[in-house]
Amino acid sequence: MSDKARRRRWQSRLGWLLIVCGLGLIGYVAWQFYGTNIVSARKHREVTTSLQEQWKAGEDFAAVDEMKADALLRVPRFGKDYVVPILQGTSDDVLASGVGHFTETASVGQVGNYALAAHRVTHGEPFRDMPDLEVGDEVQIETRTRIYTYVLTSGGDALVVPFTSTWVLDPLPTNPDGGIQPAQKPGQKLITLTTCSELFHTDNRMIAFGRLESTEKK
């Protein structure tokens, strides 16, 4: 075989290899932006159903795949059918199954800061429409015995911070730059929503603050 023929053969093989790699990359991106949403939407329904069944049985939480779900999140701004389970922790598995509660922050309805995190893209996208949230919007947390209604005091995209800005999880978040923050009054019952501010990387976080407005017994 001539050198020219060998070069053509290797060029052909390299071309096919590049095509296969390109198709693999397209498939990976498609899975991240579409496949994970399908799987997570199914998981959200599964966890929600399991939790509601446990509530009927008198239990406060549901154990699903070694994760603990104890509440349901509803945000009227996101639509009347919007409901997502809240699980303890913020691991990858938790955030693929619903909304995560930072366990080092206050419990729902308690004095302090009840902080939640969720994906904005992929894995069900619970907080995809967070930029649409406005001051005065309600965030409802349902547990076995009560419904807690928080009212936002800042808009969904009004505050963006680096992912290292852990002050937003403090019992009374105080902005070191003097910008958007909850009213600086000790003893409040607050809520903080966090998600990625950009759609295609995760260096920054979008933050919304709120305060407890009412508690209703079920």
Rank of each mutant, 00 (worst) to 15 (best):
K43Y: 14
E53S: 09
S197C: 04
N37A: 09
A208F: 01
E66H: 13
G89Q: 06
Q54T: 04
N113P: 10
D65K: 13
Y150P: 06
L51D: 11
S154W: 02
Y82N: 06
V64K: 07
V135K: 02
H101F: 15
Q184T: 08
D170E: 15
A208H: 02
L159V: 07
G109C: 10
S40D: 01
K185W: 03
Q54V: 07
A183Q: 06
P171W: 08
Q110C: 03
V160T: 13
D170H: 13
V111G: 04
G100L: 04
L199C: 09
V64S: 05
T153G: 10
V121W: 11
W16Q: 07
V94A: 09
Q184G: 05
G179K: 10
G179T: 05
A158L: 08
F127A: 05
A62T: 11
G15T: 14
S197I: 03
A208G: 01
E66L: 09
D177L: 12
H123F: 11
S214R: 15
K4G: 05
D129C: 00
F209I: 03
V84H: 06
G178Q: 09
Q11T: 12
R211H: 06
E134T: 13
I26F: 13
I26W: 12
E104D: 00
H123A: 09
M206N: 08
I86A: 00
Q88V: 01
G109W: 13
K189G: 03
A5D: 04
S50D: 02
K218I: 15
G187W: 04
I141A: 03
A115P: 01
E104T: 00
L51P: 01
G100K: 13
I191W: 09
A106C: 01
G79H: 13
S12G: 09
L172T: 00
L87K: 13
E104G: 01
V99Q: 10
G22S: 12
Q184H: 07
Q188M: 07
D60F: 12
E198V: 02
K43W: 12
W16R: 14
R205G: 04
E104W: 00
M67V: 05
T90P: 02
D137A: 08
Q52I: 06
E138M: 00
A30D: 08
G179V: 12
D170T: 05
W16D: 06
M206V: 02
A57S: 15
L14A: 15
E59W: 08
H44Q: 14
A158D: 10
F209L: 02
F200T: 15
I26M: 12
E53I: 06
E104L: 00
W10I: 12
V20L: 10
T145P: 04
A183G: 04
L14T: 11
L18H: 07
V94T: 11
L87E: 09
T105D: 14
N113D: 03
